[in-house]
Write a protein that binds this DNA or RNA. Structure first.
Lengths: 201, 201
DNA sequence: TATGCGAACCGAGACGGTTCGTCTTGACAA
DNA sequence: TTGTCAAGACGAACCGTCTCGGTTCGCATA
């Protein structure tokens, strides 16, 4: 009886792996989520379907790896955010950069497709948080802690709540096409959040 | 040449319409989004497939009507939110009620399915905002304006931004399974937002 | 060192099963 | 008489599995 659950990683074709992730990103950016099928990815990557099914459990898992490869080209490296010493400046720059990513099809299209899969699949959501969201949030919290030490945020401020209040409204606008992604919006968002969590005077 | 784009509304079967919306809601709550197919809805509603395709352009459009029928059983009536005179009390109650809806499968499952369709289809997103989100947001803004008049919010507070900062973090947690929906979370959210938009002293 | 062998990968695509969206049929109602 | 209705046949697309040779790798034997 052969166990089919664990293919031999050491013999995996790196060329095929990269071609599949690249094909998934290109296809979703060019033709949209609706036309992103396993068959289309395989054809585009010049790869047999079985090669995809062997290494990924679902289309969403392929997308997760695609987005991961896109967001940290430099791998296994801890993310560090700019620190000018002024939290308002840094957060506004960070939020503007995030909005710019949402506006760039090459980045936004795969991320939107992944978000759809995540919404429908809680297990994929777990993987996403562990491998993509958590490292990014940790970097942001580092920057917020630095601001706390500098007396620019209340000492007892809830950093997770701050990140939610900053990121969620922008992400919501982008995902549901429900509002602007412009920098004056993100600036006002940062202003409001800093007002809520400024040190007591 | 017969124009197929405008079927005769006056001859539409009300029984079939209701059965289809009900079947969509029941199916998605029982078996999940992945198994929600047009064929399954038709079978469940004891309806021909063509009856669905005749009246709705997509599965997402059916879901939109399903959710709409669910959220305003009393139709075409302007929504009015409770007003105890204290904005903090009212907002905390509103947010707890919203979190409770997210936790109830009969309501949450169709809404989650609709959200997925909306994320993939900007035109459906437009319809959703016009027919579902906008009326609810207008009711919330009425309550916020009343709080402004009572001096509980800054006179120049951005009401749209307030609603974003309240709703988006909660919705994000629910959609992406990324955090708690508990009432102590929504309470802290309300506290933070009110801190940011309290009147200048 | 060179040769041979088995295992697991690879691309390609056949296969049966679902679902899609369209089309046809005959019944029924305005 | 006309248009909607339930039912379901139809071809196309995609699913996930399986099969087929071809290739690559590790290991054993000479």
């Amino acid at each position: 009886m052969t166990t089919r659950s664990t293919p031999d990683t050491s013999r995996r074709s790196e060329r095929s792996r990269k071609a599949i992730l690249q094909a998934a990103r290109d296809l979703v950016a060019e033709t949209g989520y609706a036309k992103l099928t396993i068959e289309a990815i395989a054809a585009r990557a010049k790869v047999g379907k079985q090669t995809i099914y062997r290494w990924w459990p679902s289309k969403g898992a392929v997308l997760l790896d695609s987005v991961l490869a896109l967001s940290q080209a430099d791998q296994d490296q801890d993310i560090t955010l700019p620190d000018t010493g002024d939290i308002e400046t840094d957060l506004k720059a960070l939020m503007r950069a995030t909005a710019a990513e949402f506006a760039a099809p090459a980045f936004a299209a795969p991320l939107r497709a992944l978000t759809i899969e995540i919404t429908a699949d809680p297990r994929l959501a777990d993987d996403y948080h562990k491998r993509v969201a958590a490292p990014m949030e940790e970097a942001k919290k580092q920057r917020l802690r630095s601001a706390q030490r500098a007396g620019q945020l209340a000492a007892d401020a809830d950093l997770d709540l701050i990140l939610d209040m900053l990121y969620a409204p922008l992400a919501q606008h982008w995902m549901l096409h429900s509002g602007p992604l412009a920098s004056d919006y993100t600036d006002r968002l940062v202003d409001a959040v800093l007002r809520a969590f400024s040190p007591r005077t």
